[in-house]
Nucleic acid binder design. Sequence first.
DNA 1: GAGGTTGATGTAACTGGTTACATGTGTCAA
DNA 2: TTGACACATGTAACCAGTTACATCAACCTC
Lengths: 348, 348
Amino acid sequence: MLKMWKSLPLMTGVQNKKRANLRDVAKAAGVSVATVSRVLNAPGAVSPATRERVEAAIRTLRFVPSAAARAINSGRTRFVGALVPTLDNAIFASFLAALEHKLGEYQLSLVVATTHNDPAIEAEKAKTLVDIGAEGLIVSGITHDPALDDLIERCHLPAIATSFHAPDYYLPTVGYDNAAATAIALDFLAGQGHRDIAVVHGPLANNDRTRARLDGLKQSASAVDLRFFETEIAISGGCQAAKSILAAPDPVSAILCCSDVLALGVLFELQRKAIRVPDDLSLMGVDDLAASAHAEPGLTTVHLPVSRMGEATAAAIASWIETQERPEPVLLEPERVIRGSTRSYSAG
Amino acid sequence: MLKMWKSLPLMTGVQNKKRANLRDVAKAAGVSVATVSRVLNAPGAVSPATRERVEAAIRTLRFVPSAAARAINSGRTRFVGALVPTLDNAIFASFLAALEHKLGEYQLSLVVATTHNDPAIEAEKAKTLVDIGAEGLIVSGITHDPALDDLIERCHLPAIATSFHAPDYYLPTVGYDNAAATAIALDFLAGQGHRDIAVVHGPLANNDRTRARLDGLKQSASAVDLRFFETEIAISGGCQAAKSILAAPDPVSAILCCSDVLALGVLFELQRKAIRVPDDLSLMGVDDLAASAHAEPGLTTVHLPVSRMGEATAAAIASWIETQERPEPVLLEPERVIRGSTRSYSAG
DNA sequence: GAGGTTGATGTAACTGGTTACATGTGTCAA
DNA sequence: TTGACACATGTAACCAGTTACATCAACCTC
């Protein structure tokens, strides 16, 4: 399995000319280009003897068919592009992992580009993805640069918007209702008796998922008093937010984080300050990362089915590409997961 | 920015025929294909009036140049493929993030494929990457299926092996010395007085990085007594391992984890069991994830420069593709990061 | 033995761009 | 006025495959 330099076959003199093509192989095997093409694509249609000869020629000439030439005929490049804000949040990594895996079932590969939540970068990278031949695009959320919409329309490009549910949107969405997810969380905390709740969320600029999550809170926030803390979506952001919360004048009995990464950061910071979760403060997240289940205490959260979202997205874009028919939006239900980081609270 | 269905321009009757091509545009604009091509690639070489007409035709016909046709001439597809074991470990996500970012500077996109540490899957996915036209390949480690080596050779494909340092390997490596990384960790713990150390590591099967890390320990393990615990590389694996360690007959004073994910899992489990880190047990990792710095206590670890590795890999493969010259291996130094999870120990 | 069928193979026209080279026009200097 | 030269544009070959259709032999059947 392990291969060092010396074992590399000498290829001096073989490499002098450029890559062999179909014609070269045909000539070497004494057959026509059509026959070589058949050996490659429908070996059954070629007599064993001829096939043998052609295969030998392919080997000696080290022939590798050109993907581009193939694509020009089939009109298919067999890959799609995904634009995600970042890879540094495990939530997107999980999504992409499922997406990539499921795309494989449709013989599609995945090109990944990160946007850092900047619509301009997103539009620009979408352009490159189209330029290199992506057959479809997967984006996050429904707020985009007009240039992106324009691109998608001009190219008649199958494109799916994920991490969001908006049945009327001009692209089919595959995702969950972000507002519902945080509403579920808030309802739970309110049901537990919490009235003063700190909400930790990521930047609102250019992030419709975060905005929707906050909207979900504001709508069902009748009986509770919410204090909002904006921070960067990262463990460190969670730590920061926790410090701010603890430094704020009026205390809270629970902290609701719009992402689990934030909640984990908060949890670490609370541990650092020797504040017990859930005895001194309840903590709840939204996402349900792998780490959330195993943290101590286990993080009560709202499970967002990102793996299923990846699979559904793969299926949707693949079917769109195959059948040319725009798929229906897919709504995935978030689900409350109660673990140890929350407890009921009675005022006073 | 937000676009709903109704705003979609009607394209009934426009779409009846397939995508327009260069010839269609040329005809519509009353010019030759060469002129249209020039408008696209060298607008300065075309008179403003003609350019105007051609651009109008492009717009009305919704012409989008075919990536494949372009690639067939230039011989360039402008993307490379990366094969990583998984996206679920933040260490690979960080690497890919840096890789993707830096590749952008060279106008290269990134196709991602996951191998789950299975050489057969790796070889198969490498094949698809080549089939769709990847100009280069990035793999993890140096143990691969012969089919992969064969593919790389047959295609004269630039390929870089990462997360490893092996100057004699038949592919240039960009990475760190895994054995050195764990040796650094062990030296540190030994220097702190620890003599009985539990080592938590991932599966050895098909993972040369893990094997190398263990080798690093075994080589410098003269004065210490190591107990090995193999588990799955995930938070949950770390929790499992911690349980095993605590259940084992002879106690240890420190736990050394070959990956930070494992260490975080261990940390959570120890917290669950109310075992204080570092007072009751020292804990050390290798990787230095974002979470490691902010955990409580902060995780003492060995920083592996995966972001720099991503950048160096991008630079290496890009230069190989451009210049056709195999780049030199790059060795990146791991670095000890002392945080709060370790403390000196005196026996008795 | 004529006619029909099957199987293997070749010819050449496609795919959709790029580009070397040819052509034609206009400007300027000699 | 002519030659030199720049500039704009067109023609057609080219890239490396796929594939419709033609060809031809072998076999089978009536």
